[in-house]
């Protein structure tokens, strides 16, 4: 009898492929306006925002779906959503 093969999935990024391709709008973080409150990081459902050593947020565009929650929740309007089509 031959070996039975089982499809086994491992934990990892991209269960739905490159979800960055789902974006129709893109969050741009304007670091000068950022007060490092962390709220964009807190509310990203992916998560697609990471913090650098100084605590500034950055977007991982490979996975960011462009929902716009981060921009809406930012208390200092440091995140702008720009169209992917212009």
């Amino acid at each position: 009898m031959g070996e039975v093969m089982y499809p086994v999935t491992e934990p990892g990024e991209g269960a739905a492929g490159k979800t960055g391709n789902w974006r129709w709008q893109k969050p741009i973080i304007i670091i000068d306006k950022c007060v490092k409150c962390g709220l964009c990081w807190v509310y990203c459902p992916e998560p697609a925002i990471y913090l650098d050593k100084m605590g500034y947020p950055h977007v991982n565009y490979e996975w960011c779906k462009g929902c716009g929650i981060c921009a809406h929740e930012c208390p200092s309007k440091a995140i702008e959503m720009v169209s992917e089509y212009e």
């Binding site: 991209g14 789902w22 992916e46 991982n60 996975w63 779906k65 716009g68």
Partner: peptide, 17 residues
Amino acid sequence: EWIYAGHPACHGCGAAL
């Protein structure tokens, strides 16, 4: 984080968060 990005939830999914 124990959830990996690039998952199939819709944009802005409350459940994913």
